[in-house]
Design a protein around this nucleic acid. Sequence first.
DNA 1: GAATTTTCCGCAACCGTTTGCGGGACAGAT
DNA 2: ATCTGTCCCGCAAACGGTTGCGGAAAATTC
Lengths: 331, 331
Amino acid sequence: MTIKDLGKMLNLSTSTVSRALSDHPDISEATKIRVRKLAEEFNYAPNVHARLFRNQNSGLIALILPEVNMFFTPNLIKGINKTIAASNYSLITFLSNDSYKKEKEIIKQCLGWAVEGVLISLSKETHDLSHLEALKQAEIKCVLLDKALDNEQYPAVTIDSTKASYMAITHLIKKGHRNILGVFGNPNFTISQERIKGYKKAMEDNNIPVLNENIICVDKSTDLDYILPPILNHNKDINAIFTMSDELLAKSLYHLRALGLTVPKDISILSISDGEFPYLTHPQTTHIKDSGSKMGRSACKFLLQYIKEPSKKQEKGLVVSTKLVELGSVK
Amino acid sequence: MTIKDLGKMLNLSTSTVSRALSDHPDISEATKIRVRKLAEEFNYAPNVHARLFRNQNSGLIALILPEVNMFFTPNLIKGINKTIAASNYSLITFLSNDSYKKEKEIIKQCLGWAVEGVLISLSKETHDLSHLEALKQAEIKCVLLDKALDNEQYPAVTIDSTKASYMAITHLIKKGHRNILGVFGNPNFTISQERIKGYKKAMEDNNIPVLNENIICVDKSTDLDYILPPILNHNKDINAIFTMSDELLAKSLYHLRALGLTVPKDISILSISDGEFPYLTHPQTTHIKDSGSKMGRSACKFLLQYIKEPSKKQEKGLVVSTKLVELGSVK
DNA sequence: GAATTTTCCGCAACCGTTTGCGGGACAGAT
DNA sequence: ATCTGTCCCGCAAACGGTTGCGGAAAATTC
């Protein structure tokens, strides 16, 4: 059932039918009623792709994720979906599998789909943003999620990592801890660097010397399996651990228990977290809440706004706030 | 960048370019190479809407989820995306937020998008499948995920829940446990009922009386906060716990620790699980692996196959196998 | 060298919808 | 009776990619 079919039955041209259905003032009320009635009767639904093809817009927002783990991603997806659902866009999702090559291909697909906006969390392999150039040329708005990769070109929605870890360490220091082990991700990522910076600054501001051996960086959380136990066995002075993510927290807690250390009696622990996992641990883990769902919502709202009116002031992106949630893992 | 643009640059007609890109035998190798090179250089991506419009299909698969939690869903999404990426479909994702009304609206949206297939995990509120009728009428293939809601109309991809819990309980019994507390979800869901059935059957097959007080059902995992502690305090005979999901496992472990019970010394625990969380616990939790990613892959492959050739034998769906993974939580 | 086949490419129509433009019919003003 | 304006509606082009068909040039056959 197409517009043409309707027109034939009513002895009307396709243009008239089209205009009648979209309530165009050029069409008489009588005609509109006739058309609507027949359309209803035959359950006419416009061909989406014909319309999108003609109008050159898709009503689609693309979400590109490097992976989907059990920590940050679920809430991020939730937040984004919530905002999308309240708009009249739909969400089309891609996984880059942490591959730069795949990411590039996905960008191409986005162009093909004529998406109107892109939310992208960069893959681990991605160190420059040249592959996003194609989006820019097509005037497709693109917002970076979480990982920003110092750049001036694309707005990013992030958390203030430096501040978050500064808050974390400061809290531990206030509670009397001075020998704090910092557990971070791949030191090549901006996100790790910033969190290390916050760690160091908090220590320095409190006149505590920063020991490099108390800062450990791992690429995969499983690396902790052979890194963490020896450190904890060897360095008995450590009385608090700071982990920069839920994943590292989970692994660290595992090893603490394996070593027979009780939280918070023997050792305190504090993490930057999405705010779900800490409630599943015993004792529940004090953390700096870095909400994925909040970031998802913010980023998505930001993008939609950015699409509607691309203003200069928005080109820098925004920073999602974090806060300390005191539970039971710090003595 | 369109086919026309490419043609102009190479002094070729659009038809030749089109055929060259799709490796048509009519086109000489030399021309194909020229075209492909230029297409690569200018980052040409075919306009999906134009192609789909012409071909009268959408290239879209819809994924409808009731929620996205940190356990099952991430891997499910991963598995589905993997299969989708290997096909030439794209994935459009919706969240029903466990609302029947929202689910119904989403179905309508799917019709609007002219999706070619739907993967749906039903919301908690959904007790009949009448809202899927519209899909059937439009000949859009629909596959149920995980929750099946006894029905003959739509194929479902599930795990054999009864068998999984039968395996679990049998393992515990073999290890010498007889007082096994079963922790289940909402008893109105088929999935819970089947798992309870497996529990009971295993007990009966081993001539152990089934005590109703040893079977607890909770709607939300937080309900365990007030249900589990009194039971464990009151009923000291319980020496093993079976939980039917990761979420229930996590909550149960929390309370075990809060009560000062050590796994597996004081009590054993075994769960049906996605296979990630058990490795984050200490000791690592013995579980029946019910892989979300495997189910995602299977379901998606099934759907794509079903779309390609809708045969009779496929109308019943399929059952994903599970297996016992022995770790350290059972004495 | 003529006839036939093969190779390679272009022409043009088509998919369904939207929209600028033009025009016929009709009413009211001059 | 002519002119101006309004109200409705149809014509036709355009969006980008695909494909049946036809045909020129080159290669092959007899």
